[in-house]
Design a protein around this nucleic acid. Structure first.
Lengths: 190, 190
DNA sequence: AATATAACCGAACAGGTTGTTCAGTATATA
DNA sequence: TATATACTGAACAACCTGTTCGGTTATATT
């Protein structure tokens, strides 16, 4: 890829992320982005069809990156994912996010637009669906798969969001423990 | 309140809901609203500061209505909420939503804007917080309250959303059962 | 180094949206 | 009937969007 293209693209992303830390997606205008990225208006539109596509591509670059790395690790250390209990997948994800803490995860915060969480869930869903084959016979008769997947994905995602909202100050292990306890208490009160 | 005001307000709400069933909140313009409501532009702005305030007031009218009714019922049939297990609160909420199915709950669907879900959660949180005093001693030492409340609210809200996405075809009892099973399986896989 | 290619600039543009203003008209209330 | 209040309709500036185009600059190729 042309160095100019790459630099422009990065400048746009940087300006966009910068603005996202200050205001909502809806409140950000293309004018602000190109001013901060210091590029021409036409240039922006030659890179991204609209503001929405910019967001979409940013999320893809962000989350696909994270989840792809996880898939890679799975292939390298197969035992972690296939033999251990599924909660280690969650713990693994948390550690991954902690490692990749590039000030961009803040976008998942509840203070920001819901769109990030949606994209995040989208990717998480893929991961979960591919790993929930076990216990299928027990589950399938009583519980629709889509409900089950939605439940898992939502609880995971909301936990991650809570963590980020609290500045990721707890360790991944602590969060995993919180999650376990919350589910446990849930069974008690039901 | 002046009959004119009331009628205008209702016309705006009706047009707005109508449009929301067709497109996203972001895509709806004030121009479309006033055309469909058949009122003047200035009139709209004398009622609502912006489009966002319109959404806010609609949600308040909608959800406060639902949750206030629940609080009333609680006062009338005190036993349901204070003696029974907390899951009956959830079941109660589901039955309530089913009864109040005025084609407006569709707004909670994932196809629509996330803002509704946010407002819904906001109200749900109040309800949950006021009912989660039990088991406090066991919980508080190990699990932060905000995590616990967030977990409960999110799982409830996402369950309701799944239900609505599936056209509310299952009975409230079935959904409550799904919820119970999902949490149960969750403890198994952890 | 010379040339062709592709990206960028920047200024301008039409079309659409927002939120405000104001003089005039209709409706409620006393 | 008289007064207050809500609505009308049209116009308005300010802003945002997405496109166009001739000219400029960087990159890749030879």
């Amino acid at each position: 890829m042309d160095r100019r293209q790459r630099k422009t693209r990065e400048a746009i992303f940087a300006a966009f992320i910068d603005l996202l830390s200050e205001k909502n997606f809806a409140q950000i205008t293309v004018g602000e982005i190109i001013e901060r990225a210091d590029i021409g208006r036409a240039t922006f539109y030659s890179h991204f069809e609209t503001k929405d596509f910019l967001l979409k591509e940013l999320c893809e670059e962000l989350f696909c990156h994270i989840f792809d790395e996880m898939t890679e690790e799975k292939n390298n250390h197969n035992h972690i994912f296939t033999c251990d209990a599924p909660d280690s997948v969650f713990l693994h994800l948390l550690e991954h996010l902690k490692r990749n803490d590039n000030n961009v995860l803040k976008l998942l915060s509840s203070r920001n637009n819901e769109l990030f969480l949606q994209y995040f869930k989208q990717n998480l869903r893929k991961l979960v669906e591919s790993r929930l084959a076990m216990f299928e016979s027990e589950r399938s008769a009583k519980l629709p798969e889509s409900f089950w997947v939605n439940h898992i994905v939502s609880t995971f995602a909301e936990t991650v969001r809570w963590w980020i909202d609290n500045d990721m100050s707890e360790s991944p292990e602590t969060i995993a423990e919180y999650f376990f306890l919350a589910v446990l208490f849930e069974t008690i009160i039901l």
